[in-house]
Write a protein that binds this DNA or RNA. Structure first.
Lengths: 256, 256
DNA sequence: CGTAACGTTGAACTGTCTCAAGATCCGTGG
DNA sequence: CCACGGATCTTGAGACAGTTCAACGTTACG
């Protein structure tokens, strides 16, 4: 019974086209069982045994966000760290005049909250309906003390993000709009596959504006690039948010 | 006696204008004393006591690189991690046709070798004469097991780099050439200050080509931006590689 | 059915790149 | 000591890619 509810929730969270009324931010006290969680084997929790996980579960609460709602803002005190359970978020930075750069999309299994300061250095907002589990950072650190493999896993996670960030710098600094979009689609595909979500008809949860701010382009350029890839037969676009990859090799060739 | 030699070495390494004949790669077996090292209190070693540091020192060897020599290439087996003792290196990624993006400059106190794979995902080359200390990654991990504060320090280091990477994405994706150069100069100033090196007349160890590949621009655009900043009175350029910041506030204002 | 958000397309503009030439600095060798 | 060649940096002119501005189409929703 409880399980079906979770499954239903996850179905909605992982399928962006299944829209529903935005609900208020909900902080769930009644913890669902971590052992049965969808990201049990992919998130940082995967390095803990079911018994060890008790310690995490005790300090964990759920956060549910409707689409477009912010989880945290740059400058906020970094009091919590999170795991994404389902849905998609965008991490971004702003300039004074409103220019925005999205530094990454966060999806099921991702860790949120690497902070070098007392405060976050970025905004995080939900792209679509999203669920996270939340840990008070102090207590989380205490759990890390007990389980060194958790800290090691965090370091692996950070190293991964660092490598991705470097790849994104290459994209932003030296690749053409076409190449950027191709890389974006391939990454998204890879990311969804890894999260065990449908990736053949790629379903985009983010808008053209989000993609543009991620790729360092304007929405018009992004749109033109989609059209170009479609006309060249590399992709199909049954709907604006549904991408079918028709020539994987050609796409991959573009990004090298 | 040994100490004076080290001091002399460091003077050369930290002052890019003090050029000397390029020497071959030298891997020093006779370890200088870590306790007396210039980066003892800024690098990751700072979390270890002199006694604890013995464990690191035992597995450490020095590497000396002449300018332009590579330390490692993308795809190499990630068998070592490093600390930069003195000098400057560039970390970069290449596309098949030779386009290059420099993802960061490494200076005294920086850690090298965050790898999410069995292999490095970037090139690292010396910009000027450089010294590093090198640790076999397996043995380094073993030392980490013994001293959990070391792993914690690494995580802090990675989180820092991640925040810098995100700021660089903002720069590459959304800032004008002028803003990019201003930000670069301020960062370099900050970085040198932190490393305890002279930062008032800013002495650039990297070429215009390096700066261009770091900022996602061409060398011509970088040159024009230098000229523009000079004509606007924000900086002075007594030599091409010496920058005097004349209006710090105006520069800072540009980057926000 | 009307409005608002989102996406696409076209035309003109503009900033950066490309290409080319000249200036400067450095180490080398006559 | 000076001439030379190479590397680096600067500057200019023209080309072009991506942005800006504007209009239109589509979809979702009250």
């Amino acid at each position: 019974m409880g399980d079906t509810a979770i499954v239903g929730m996850m179905a909605k969270l992982t399928n962006p086209s299944a829209q529903s009324k935005p609900m208020a931010v909900r902080i769930g006290q009644p913890n669902s069982l971590c052992a049965a969680c969808a990201i049990r084997d992919t998130a940082i929790c995967s390095v803990l045994s079911d018994v060890e996980m008790q310690a995490l579960q005790e300090i964990m609460t759920h956060v549910d966000l409707p689409a477009r709602k912010a989880l945290l803002y740059e400058g906020d005190e970094a009091n919590f760290v999170y795991n994404v359970v389902g849905g998609t978020l965008r991490m971004s930075k702003l300039l004074a005049d409103g220019r925005r750069q999205i530094t990454g999309f966060l999806m099921a299994g991702d860790f949120v909250g690497f902070a070098c300061d007392e405060t976050y250095s970025f905004d995080v907002e939900a792209v679509c309906e999203t669920r996270l589990c939340r840990f008070p950072v102090r207590q989380f650190e205490a759990v890390c003390e007990s389980f060194p493999q958790l800290e090691k896993r965090l370091l692996r996670e950070a190293s991964n993000e660092l490598a991705e960030a470097q790849d994104q710098m290459l994209l932003l600094g030296r690749q053409s709009p076409q190449e950027r979009l191709a890389k974006f689609l391939l990454r998204l595909r890879h990311r969804l596959e890894r999260a065990g979500q449908p990736a053949d008809p790629l379903s985009l949860s983010m808008t053209r504006s989000d993609i543009a701010d991620y790729l360092g382009l304007t929405i018009e350029t992004v749109s033109r690039c989609f059209t170009r890839l479609r006309k060249d037969g590399l992709i199909a676009l049954p709907e604006a948010n549904i991408v079918v990859i028709k020539d994987l090799q050609a796409l991959e060739q573009m990004t090298i």
